[in-house]
Design a protein around this nucleic acid. Structure first.
Lengths: 354, 354
DNA sequence: TTGTAGGCGTTATCAC
DNA sequence: GTGATAACGCCTACAA
């Protein structure tokens, strides 16, 4: 990088702590004390209020650079992720994280580092050169990760991921509860023969949702039937294939729980091809709440939402707390499970009288 | 905010310019000169190389805070947007912007400020307190905006938006060309009777895509038929309604250009209900390339992609250039139009022999 | 209760 | 060619 050689162009409009001090007729120490509520040094109440008022009137806000330099704190969080920014829900995670950080006066820097499996070998220097006070390590979907050693040196929170070290705060969707929520919704409507179009990947979402499905059946006294669970690719085509298979069973399931909304999209096609209707002949429930799909389908899709916004918020809250008081290591369950709420639309109804 | 009262905890592992100077056996001034290729002060080649080597070995990287303070430059860009982070394509914009900024050594801070029409009245102080060197003002979809006075004080680039001041760099999708691309693709396959399921909103995308549709017809010597253009809500339901209408015409269009992929999703349903098949009886082409929809539909949807990633990249490149050399105001067309590439999938074919 | 001074790490000016 | 030094704006130990 080549320098311009020019001296810094000072912005005369910018008000500094000196200006406030001058305007309030006190020393800049007093201003600092007053504005920061410093514990030791007490400032007369009257003085403090005058200082505050002056600062407000002048539109003073402390320089982040100067404060960072002095305090060795940047008040900036890094969100390091694989392709999180391209995942359909990335926006929600970023939004939740960003809003929370902003509300607490922190900045959030996004670092997209490509495939996360390259992480160990990759050069993270650029990330750390940005001098952040903490790291949120987010993955595109719920999974188990190995945290690079370099990253452990900073306060760290995992989002949508868990690792071996159970002392690292981590937040993931409660897949089990979500699977249970979906299944219970069907049971509540009177369904007893419920197919599950699941996926084939060996990831927590697969195990968890299946476990939730089983738990709901058990709680309702419905026998688990292996034939009602069909695993396929977690795409629309997989959902189509799985649903076709399920609809060909005797007796035919009156409802299908789909691993995600894309699979549900395929299931809709299978139902239509079988000349059946949703939800009269078959109820469909999805997972993920991808709104484009869920609201675009006809009838609109009842589904279970992944709490991305909430996870973003949680990660930032906990990371800032961790930074501000590392000693306060609250004993907490690991990982933190964020509930997945039901989003009711039109694709679930009661089965026709048998 | 309450202070801890503790003195700053210095990170002993962090190497500063002094360490490099000591290790290289020169003064820290020389290190700065050598590392920054300062014009006036020349450093002996041998010295410079030694300094560089030492810096590399020690893993030195200058403190951003200190540099910001000294240079009055934060090397940080703000991306101020309405609900961009929740829009389905937000990820692509952010990704393009972030990768580009990162590659040039800049940081990108995202500021989500809710509904942008409130912008004038909104308190942007928090944004500017973050001390950024420039602003990317991004909207959720292509439109005309009024830029708040405060924002004009900083280098500014508009993304997916245009404003009255034609000297403000601005990048938007080339809607006209995109509409033309879609229509031409259908014409190339031999279609002559092409319906257009458009939307009702009074936005540039509506006018532009229609204009492109007309231009393509004209270029192919096909008479524009008003009845072939049906405006509806830009949702799946609107696409359904529009397609139903179009499919009832005599003669029936052999192809339908849908304003966006969601409308195309609805059009698929209308085609299926009419017991027609895609693309044998009717070809469908969308717009936006929302992958979840386009790849989930059966058959997969041929569509025109919005260049979000590229717009993010363009905005950052141009903003940094503007900051680094404001005098270099290149005379350029306004706004910059980013082409929308065709994404071929399976929903377009040739019409059956008449 | 308030003021003074030193330093956070860097770059630019100006001597040597 | 090289080095000492003064800022950038802020916070805080310490003196008054």
């Amino acid at each position: 990088v080549t320098r311009t050689g020019k001296p810094p162009v000072l912005d005369p409009s910018r008000v500094s702590i000196r200006d406030v001090a001058a305007a309030a007729g006190v020393s800049l120490t007093t201003v600092s004390h007053a504005l920061n509520d410093v514990e030791g040094a007490r400032v007369a109440l009257k003085t403090r209020e005058r200082v505050r008022k002056t600062a407000r009137e002048l539109g003073y806000s402390p320089s982040r650079s100067a404060r960072s330099l002095r305090l060795q704190r940047t008040h900036t969080l890094a969100m390091v992720s694989d392709v999180v920014a391209t995942s359909p829900h990335a926006g929600e995670i970023i939004l939740g994280a960003q809003e929370t950080a902003f509300a607490r006066g922190w900045a959030l820097a996004i670092f997209n580092i490509g495939q996360i499996r390259d992480l160990e070998s990759r050069d993270l220097d650029p990330v750390f050169q940005h001098e952040v006070d903490g790291v949120i390590y987010a993955t595109m979907y719920h999974r188990h990760v190995k945290v690079p050693a370099r990253m452990r040196k900073l306060p760290l929170v995992l989002l949508d991921a868990r690792c071996d070290n159970t002392r690292t705060p981590s937040v993931v969707p409660d897949e089990v509860l979500g699977g249970r929520t979906a299944t219970e919704e069907l049971i509540k409507r009177g369904h007893r023969c419920i197919g599950f179009a699941t996926n084939r990947d060996d990831i927590p979402a697969t195990w968890g949702r299946l476990e939730g499905y089983k738990a709901a059946l058990k709680a309702a006294g419905i026998r688990f039937d292996r034939k009602l669970v069909v695993a396929q690719e977690s795409e629309a085509s997989g959902g189509y294939a799985a649903a076709r298979r399920l609809l060909s069973l005797q007796p035919r399931p009156t409802a299908i729980f789909c691993f995600n909304d894309r699979m549900a999209m395929g299931a809709y096609r299978a139902v239509a091809e079988a000349r059946l209707s949703i939800p009269d002949d078959v109820s469909i429930i999805g997972f993920d709440n991808q709104e484009i799909i869920a609201e675009g389908l006809h009838p609109s899709l009842t589904t279970v939402a992944l709490p991305h916004f909430e996870m973003g918020r949680w990660a930032v809250e906990n990371l800032i707390d961790l930074i501000e008081d590392p000693s306060r290591v609250r004993p907490t369950v690991y990982p933190t499970l964020m509930p997945c709420p039901l989003v009711s639309r039109e694709s679930v109804g009661s089965p026709r009288a048998a």
